[in-house]
């Protein structure tokens, strides 16, 4: 039986996180991958390809305009979830993977709002004890109120 504190997380929605997609941030991200696709680097090439600015590689949604704590990537809802789960006695964390649905391109200059929701938390019996699977769904909407992407992340704790 899952602890009440953990069960209370299910269905919880975080505050919208405003993310700026800056040109330089796109290039640093592409450079870290070693991806020199001109769509991410060359303004003119991006325009010839039908975009009004360089685009972000699929999976990059910019940086939050502000953040608390040492990990900008960890949104408050996710941090709260991890904290509650660890306090409930599940020590180790594993990245259980991620699913993306890309609906529109993300371009330099876009301002996205990311809203995350804890979709489910389930416990299964593993070979070496209990394993917790938590699923967090996030939607990204741009400044024109268009849905640009949806993600579904699985976090595994044991």
């Amino acid at each position: 039986m899952l602890e009440e504190q953990v069960m209370k997380l299910v269905g919880k929605t975080g505050d919208g996180i405003v993310m700026e997609v800056e040109k330089g941030a796109i290039k640093r991200y592409a450079d870290a991958i070693g991806d020199y696709n001109p769509l991410y680097w060359d303004e003119e090439y991006a325009r010839e390809s039908g975009f009004d600015a360089i685009v972000a590689p699929p999976g990059f949604f910019g940086w939050p305009v502000s953040w608390d704590g040492p990990m900008p990537i960890l949104v408050p809802l996710m941090a709260e979830m991890m904290d509650t789960i660890i306090k409930a006695g599940y020590g180790s964390i594993l990245d259980g993977g991620i699913d993306y649905e890309f609906l529109r391109p993300v371009r330099a200059g876009d301002v996205l709002t990311a809203i995350s929701r804890i979709a489910s938390i389930t416990e299964r019996e593993g070979k070496s004890g209990k394993i917790l699977f938590s699923i967090v769904e996030t939607t990204y909407v741009n400044q024109d109120n268009e849905l640009v992407a949806k993600t579904r992340q699985t976090v595994i704790n044991r």
Partner: peptide, 25 residues
């Protein structure tokens, strides 16, 4: 995960776009 996205985007160029992508470690 980003490398595997690049595997696809290098291959398809401007001919197409990724609509869905999932990754497990």
């Amino acid at each position: 995960r980003a490398w595997l996205v690049q595997l696809i985007t290098d291959w398809i160029g401007r001919a197409g776009t990724i609509e869905k992508f999932s990754c497990q470690f």
